[in-house]
Design a protein around this nucleic acid. Structure first.
Lengths: 359, 359
DNA sequence: CTGAAAGCGCTTACAG
DNA sequence: CTGAAAGCGCTTACAG
């Protein structure tokens, strides 16, 4: 397990001067060889490379940062209080982390709440990070102003109400809505429910819920099916309540699309207790539910959502380009298509009238 | 939303020299006032404090790190490939993050695989981080040697087979086993199953599964109930298979304890398909399943496990003390008790013989 | 209790 | 294509 670059303990950490001496060049030449800021002859470059390898040289991050004002560290602003834990956010972060490492960047995890703006301002002004990835973006996002004021480069995962020229990567919720509605309509469902989040969350709110609901209504209209949209508290009881409300609002509903991970189990349980088998009598599709959660439900959940890791990667690349001053003309903004993963919770609409067993 | 420390844009970032000038002292005095490395008169301290506030001063992390060899950054070594995503790990990280911020530290998220030791060695030797929090610790943990060789301070969340004098925070699996077994025994269950992870994972393997199984067998013996331990692949089909195996191995089993988040839905589905209602005919308890996952199952899952956030916090405190050179005598090692959260998946043992409906 | 000065290990104009 | 030198903003012996 001994690497070629292992050093005996007791050796001091080699500096650029050590490398320069060993390669028989000046320290500045070593530096230029690393940054590529000016041309170096092939021969010296190779000697330097070899010397670095021999010594197991790693540039000192602090010395570099002190002079260059670049840390090669990106902050991931992931307010923990926003939606509770959720696996989807983790997938973004892993996608971002992977790509950051490939590009020679580190990720600093910042979990302060979205309201703790002074903390954030402190981070931004400290110069520790070169840029930030903004997660859990709300329609009216107070962090944006803080980041702008401190002139920290950032990219959003999600959008504000009016992103203007801000960089972002987001899900194409219109397309997701269409995909989910079409999936169900194709299987004969004519009356759908859409269960999203509670009114306060939506209003407050991260933009997704609103954009998705609008997309749903539009898609239903285009496809020619009825759609009842319901708000719903993000817990099991909320899901039960939503099912009851759907039943009242549209007794003919044979399927529901949910954008509320926490409420789905309650929704399903209520359907089963009502005497409806899933998917034979009633289909359920979830928007943007991570695979791992989709496999926890019984039956496993059909989902529509983007590949979160790919979005995390894209956002990171966008941010790094911005940091490194490339691609400066105009904002970079990208929408990611969702994919349908058909699992066991959705199927053909019940052909005959369902037997409704009131327990 | 304007803080007192806001600066007009165009101002350059204030340095220690600026603060010193405004406070009418030398830069070194400002430094000493910040580090507390030597006594400062109350009067000057206050003038300095005020000057820092007025200017919105933030010490430059790189300059500080260059001299002091301290970054106030802690790496969280969280190999993403280990168990897939999981919410439990996230809770540790949030606990750690919270506490790190309170103590003036940042968290660097490192998601390279547990096998990518060269990457890790690079990080450790770079001097970027003052220490590391080691997550997803295996019995035979290759990362430990790397960290030791590079003389990076670290604390483990979990233990190796022989932790010796390594610092760690871990779950008290003996106590968890006892708690789970007792919970079921108290409700009249006399024949239990224990479903843990697949043989490869256990052997390879993070130590938890082994320690937990041993604890289970001991607890069952102590309490006087039968316990059948089964390995199980970590997916839905694995859970189904485990249920079938349990049925064969001990037809009298009325409850199962699972340490396999991904297999639990399959296990429950198989029980239901077998004609057993949960919990009336068959109880299920999960070890170390995060609340959010426990609420996704139907019915909601009774769990035994420690408060992950508290463990993350404890590990972080341990690490910071080590970094800052306090509490140097001997290793610090802590075991955390699990707590029982009784939800809907467990209940009294069936008094009469269950009706077994073969579908 | 306080100051003047060296130096941490790089980067980057300046010079050739 | 390469070198010598200044300087980034702190910390910390050294001196008083």
């Amino acid at each position: 397990m001994e690497g070629t670059m292992s050093r005996n303990s007791g050796d001091k950490v080699p500096t650029m001067v050590d490398v320069a001496r060993r390669a028989g060049v000046s320290p500045s030449t070593v530096s230029y060889a690393m940054t590529g800021a000016r041309p170096i002859s092939e021969a010296t470059r190779e000697r330097i490379q070899q010397a670095m390898l021999d010594l197991g040289y790693r540039p000192n991050v602090f010395a570099r940062g002190l002079k260059s004002k670049r840390s090669h560290i990106i902050a991931v602003l992931f307010p923990k209080d926003e939606r509770g834990m959720n696996l989807g956010s983790m997938e973004y972060i892993f996608g971002a982390s992977d790509h950051a490492q490939n590009r020679g960047y580190h990720l600093l995890l910042w979990t302060s709440g979205a309201e703790e703006l002074d903390d954030l301002a402190g981070l931004a002004q400290q110069g520790l990070v070169d840029g930030a990835l903004l997660m859990e973006v709300r329609l009216d996002e107070p962090r944006v102003e803080v980041l702008r004021n401190s002139e920290l480069t950032f990219t959003m995962l999600g959008q504000t109400a009016d992103p203007g020229d801000l960089d972002y990567v987001d899900t194409d919720f219109d397309q997701c809505a269409r995909l989910a509605v079409t999936h169900l309509a194709d299987q004969g469902h004519r009356h759908l429910g859409f269960v999203h989040q509670d009114a306060a969350t939506i209003a407050s709110g991260r933009g997704n819920a609103i954009r998705l609901r609008d997309g749903m209504l539009r898609a239903a209209q285009d496809v020619g099916v009825a759609l009842t949209a319901l708000t719903c508290q993000s817990h099991i009881a909320g899901g039960r309540k939503a099912f009851a409300e759907l039943l009242t609002a549209d007794p003919q509903a044979t399927a529901v699309i949910a954008f509320n991970e926490q409420a789905v189990p309650g929704l399903m349980a209520a359907a089963v207790e009502h005497g409806w088998r899933i998917p034979e009598d009633f289909s359920v599709v979830s928007i943007d539910m991570p695979a791992q959660a989709a496999l926890m439900t019984t039956p496993t959940m059909t989902t529509v959502g983007p590949v979160a890791a790919a979005m995390g990667k894209a956002a990171t690349e966008m941010l790094i380009r911005r940091i490194e001053g490339q691609q400066l003309r105009g904002p970079s903004q990208a929408l990611f298509d969702g994919e349908l993963v058909a699992r066991a919770s959705s199927g053909p609409a019940p052909s005959t009238h369902r037997a409704v067993i009131h327990p």
